[in-house]
Design a protein around this nucleic acid. Structure first.
Ligand code: FES
Ligand code: FES
Lengths: 148, 148
DNA sequence: AATAATAAGTATAATTATATCCTTTTATCT
DNA sequence: AGATAAAAGGATATAATTATACTTATTATT
């Protein structure tokens, strides 16, 4: 579905949200440890998310990444587009260069609705909504029996 | 969504179906040319599909690949599972090792329905159904303005 | 038996994922 | 103020995976 980069990014952003609403900042080290993703690769992803202003970062001691409590809602689609690119939401199911009504692949009619749902899901859900669940409901952003 | 291997495979199988119902066989060369996929890579894919008995092949002059007119319906899911593996239909949206109700990711509730639809689509559609469309309706298995 | 057509098997290239290393920024301690 | 250390930023290197090309082995036809 999405690339690993993208999956990792979403998980990281949710975790960062949940753990920085009290004004704290959190380091790459801790994020990667908490969600179970490779340290350096995670760092790189957070770097591009910060550059795109999806998350905030501050260098130096006591620095780290965070999402300001008063930050506007961040749609998941924004993360996906930053990492995998926006074309992913209009790609053809069978890999044709373009998906179009004029030159459809045999799966086009059935697939386009599903793809739309995926897009809607990512546009509807925000980091803030899902991030809150992370604390309240039983949802997880790291694998089962993974050491905290 | 699916890997390139998988996309190519489905396109190839549909093309082979459409062009071998008259008892003909068709070569890798022609398949790859007609659907616009790399020659050798396509060959390899057809090889595993043949080994899995999803399509038939015969060597030597006048040989090639084909799907027998009396062959039972081939669900697209079978092709997907042969190439990308069956796990793809139960994978977690955020890349957790397992998707489960007990240890769900934050997107689980919303995603599982969509994933189910994808699975159903691939299980419902058969090579025969879609292959017929290839001749009758305006659907394509190669890119626009690609030389035949 | 020779040949030519073709599938099958092996090697290379490109991409993606991951790790290492060095630089820059900045808070804190002396 | 200067030294130090903690953190992100950035460039570059390696590994794994995926995609593609090349070579060899089969086999129907003559
Ligand atoms: S053309 Fe394939 S999904 Fe639209
Ligand atoms: S756990 Fe992520 S989709 Fe089910």
């Amino acid at each position: 579905m999405f690339s690993k980069s993208c999956e990792y990014s979403i998980r990281a952003v949710l975790y960062i949200y949940k753990n920085t609403q009290d004004g704290n900042k959190i380091s790459i080290e801790k994020v990667a440890g908490a969600i179970g993703t490779p340290r350096h690769f995670t760092g790189k992803l957070l770097q591009v998310l910060a550059k795109q202003k999806i998350i905030s970062s501050v260098k130096g001691p006591n620095g780290g990444f965070y999402i300001a409590p008063n930050a506007p809602e961040i749609r998941l689609s924004r993360v996906v587009e930053a990492i995998d690119g926006p074309e992913i939401f209009k790609a053809c199911a069978l890999g044709l260069k373009e998906c179009s009504e004029d030159h459809p692949c045999p799966l086009h009619q059935q697939y386009k609705g599903i793809r739309e749902q995926i897009k809607n899901m990512m546009e509807d859900q925000t980091v803030q909504q899902l991030g809150k669940k992370l604390g309240e409901e039983k949802v997880f952003v790291k694998n089962e029996n993974y050491p905290e």
